[in-house]
Design a protein around this nucleic acid. Structure first.
Length: 501
RNA sequence: GGCGGCAUGGCCAAGUGGUAAGGCAGGGGACUGCAAAUCCCUUACCCCCAGUUCGAAUCUGGGUGCCGCCUCCA
């Protein structure tokens, strides 16, 4: 069964065939570093991180590259506001990006090209476009001649004529409009105004337009071993709001020069909505990742990850209190399953629970033909159907939950230890493919935690109170132990068992 | 106005021709002094209308509603 993915370019699910067998070249459009990332960013990068992990799990050697846009009007404005520099602002939010993503268990890319480090490549590309007749200078700016690229609009499924109506009105207010030969043309290079950061170029001091950096970065980041610039990569991803004009323009820039497709597959993630509306900076309805995760009663970052992956990546998701609350509870269930081995492994007679490799998926050998894994792969192969994949995780987690409960309450499981072990390891391995991981908390033995003997003693006292039908006293003892993390379970026959919560 | 997408139980969400996965939240029962925990059971004809078919949530046409893009945007 092949992996299928929905290609925005064709608007169909297609079988995935990398250019080079076994290898995947994947580029993700990153952030403009002028503010903290919000939940929209979180979704996008969780989704693409998951896609990357899955491709790797499928055996592909993936090169994953994601850029930082560190030259931009918005960064500049921010710097002006706070009397800082573009570089300083960009650096700060680049760092905050890494911090936020690490919390969400998003793996680092293989390379993080930045606009400020790509100036040579950008200028070379603009020069080539100029030579081939796709670009023209105008008063220090350089624009792309959209009319000369017949394929323009193919990715976003629109024609130039159709866009005119909506674009008028706005375009006329745009000061750049005077310099453009056509309203659809877009800037490749912008002349610097006095006091703005600027780079030398054949067209005068200035800075690159937004779209050109990605075209230049893809060429350089995926060079062949002999140093030849890359023409085509396998997968290009980003938010659905980048389809037009950003990705459309990237295609126009790159393909006009190379004559080859920029990417074989274009994948786009759906938006995060708030009250049915897109979460965005301009609407002001955004919540930053750190706001959510640092709030009192904040969800575990994995709960946020779960919230995102519980919807298929192309569909919009609504960010609500209720949804997060639900995700928190869901994560509890999954987390208990992931920690099962740490909690019950010894009791089941597993001999390796103290090994340093215990719980590490890399050391787990699970039967790849198992039903759970087959179904997991089937779901994920269908355009990364993470909700379907997560359902399998829950089935495993619930089965383990049941066994754990039986172990606590009856002292033995209903299945043999080896089968349970396989279930647990399967769960841990598959969850890791989705980036969902639970780490055993380092035995936070509270200082006031009573010893086993003390607990037994108190249970004995409570037993006597119960015999005397002094239930107020027996309940008091039970509550006292509960406050110390000891849960009592009264069994039929007057036996009381206990465990630490 | 143009282009595209979505509409499944209280909430979220899979399923794309054979009579509805999963999560969250509920309900009932067993057990219990009570509770907790545990165990068992349980909740949908898939927006509307018409059509194709032996059979449609699933295909076709029409309608309604919501959303995204067309301006910076993940």
């Amino acid at each position: 069964m092949p992996l299928k993915l929905y290609n925005t370019l064709t608007r169909h699910k297609e079988s995935f065939e990398p250019l080079e067998p076994g290898k995947v070249r994947m580029y993700c459009c990153g952030v403009t570093v002028y503010d903290y990332c919000h939940l929209g960013h979180a979704r996008s990068y969780i989704v693409w991180d998951t896609v990357r992990r899955y491709l790797q799990w499928r055996g592909y050697d993936v090169r994953y590259v994601q850029n930082f846009t560190d030259i931009d009007d918005k960064i500049l404005n921010r710097a002006r506001q706070e009397g800082s520099t573009m570089q300083e602002v960009a650096e700060r939010y680049t760092q905050s990006y890494f911090e936020d993503m690490a919390r969400l268990n998003i793996l680092e890319a293989d390379a993080y090209p930045r606009a400020t480090h790509t100036l040579d490549g950008i200028k070379r590309l603009i020069h080539e476009l100029e030579q081939k007749g796709y670009a023209y200078p105008a008063e220090g700016d350089v624009y792309y001649t959209v009319r000369n690229f017949p394929e323009y609009g193919r990715l976003s499924g629109r024609r130039l004529e159709d866009m005119k109506a909506g674009a008028s009105g706005r375009v006329e207010a745009d000061p750049e409009a005077q310099k453009k030969q056509d309203p659809s043309d877009f800037a490749l290079w912008k002349a610097a105004k006095p006091g703005e950061p600027a780079w030398e170029s054949p067209w005068g001091e200035g800075r690159p337009g937004w779209h050109i950096e990605c075209s230049a970065m893809v060429r350089e980041a995926f060079r062949t071993p002999d140093g030849t610039l890359a023409d085509t990569i396998d997968i290009h991803v980003g938010g659905a709001d980048l389809v037009f004009p950003h990705h459309e323009n990237e295609i126009a820039q790159s393909e006009a020069v190379t004559g080859k497709p920029l990417a074989q597959y274009w994948l786009h993630n759906g938006m995060v909505n708030v009250g049915g509306e897109k979460m965005s900076k301009s609407l002001g309805n955004f919540t930053t990742i750190r706001q959510l995760l640092d709030a009192p009663d904040a969800p575990d970052p994995m709960a946020l990850r779960l919230f995102v992956l519980q919807a298929q990546y192309r569909k919009p998701i609504d960010f609500t209190e209720e949804a997060i609350a639900s995700a928190k509870n869901s994560w509890e269930t999954l987390q208990d399953g992931l920690l099962f081995g740490y909690q019950y492994g010894k009791q089941l007679g597993w001999t390796d629970t103290d090994d340093s490799s215990f719980g590490n998926p890399e050391y787990m050998r699970i039967p790849s033909e198992s039903e759970a894994i087959q179904r997991f792969q089937e779901s994920m192969d269908d355009d990364f159907n993470t909700p379907g994949a997560i359902a399998i995780l829950f089935e495993l987690a619930k089965a383990l939950q049941k066994e754990g409960n039986l172990l606590i309450h009856q002292g033995e499981a209903s299945t043999d230890a080896q089968t349970i072990r396989e279930q647990w390891q399967t769960l841990v391995c598959l969850a890791q493919v989705l980036g969902l991981e639970a780490k055993p908390s380092a035995e936070l033995q509270q200082a006031d935690s009573p010893t086993d003997a003390e607990i037994e003693d108190m249970i004995q006292q409570r037993q006597e109170a119960r015999k005397a039908k002094n239930f107020a006293e027996s309940d008091r003892i039970r509550d006292e132990l509960k406050a110390k993390g000891i849960i009592l379970v009264d069994q039929p026959g007057g036996i009381t068992t206990w465990h630490r919560s």
